[in-house]
Amino acid sequence: MKTRQKDRHNPPPEDPWNEIRPGLWMGGHVRAGEIPVVVGREFDLVLSLYQRAGHGPAPGVEHHFAEMPDGPLTEAQIGEVERFAGLAAEAVRAGRATLVRCHAGQNRSGLVVAQALVELGMDLTVAIALIRQRRGPGALSNQLFVQYLESGLPIARLLSDLGS
């Protein structure tokens, strides 16, 4: 399955991950220059929307993985975004350091982090602006993902398979 669109014009950020709000981090498997990012024991929970062998996290760290494209999502994939956002929000409330990551840490991870911020009580517009400020201007550049968030993930999930 092709998971990353090659037409994205935003290079990966310089940092391997950035703290978006206390306890909630957003990152990728690569950073600027396609330098690999490996997660060890820095986080209590790692939520991955893309996976590469040898990129961690270390054994014993709670890790969830759901393969997801950087493009249109199916009903089931949007359901996984909702599940991951819930896991992230719950972990942050419990004081657990949480990393949400994808390939470059911009779109798929941004979708989950934005929804987690909304679940934590933040206004969506503020959440998107905060993600772009903390992770970089290329974060959430996938306008389809922004549309999913604006319509609400439950509605987007219900509508996603109507065209197929």
Rank of each mutant, 00 (worst) to 15 (best):
Met26Asn: 00
Pro59His: 07
Ala58Trp: 14
Ala91Cys: 07
Arg101Cys: 07
Trp17Leu: 06
Leu73Val: 10
Pro59Arg: 02
Thr3His: 05
Lys6Ser: 15
Gly40Thr: 11
Ile35His: 11
Pro69Tyr: 05
Tyr50Glu: 08
Ala89Asp: 09
Trp25Ala: 02
Ala32Met: 11
Gly23Ile: 03
Leu117Arg: 02
Gly121Gln: 06
Phe84Cys: 05
Gly138Leu: 04
Pro154Ser: 10
Pro69Phe: 06
Pro36Arg: 05
Lys2Ser: 14
Leu140Ser: 01
Ile131Cys: 03
Gln115Gly: 04
Ala89Ile: 03
Leu120Trp: 09
Gly86Thr: 01
Pro154Lys: 03
Val46Phe: 05
Leu159Arg: 08
Leu162Asn: 08
Gln106Thr: 03
Gly152Ala: 13
Phe65Leu: 14
Val146Ile: 15
Gly79Cys: 08
Leu99Phe: 07
Thr125Met: 02
Pro57Ile: 04
Gly152Gln: 12
Asn10Met: 03
Gly136Glu: 01
Glu82Thr: 03
Arg21Leu: 14
Thr74Gln: 13
Gly71Met: 04
Asn142Thr: 05
Leu159Ile: 08
Val38Lys: 07
Glu82Cys: 10
Gly86Glu: 04
Ala94Cys: 08
Trp25Tyr: 15
Trp25Thr: 02
His103Glu: 12
Thr98Pro: 01
Gln143Leu: 12
Leu111Ala: 10
Val46Gly: 00
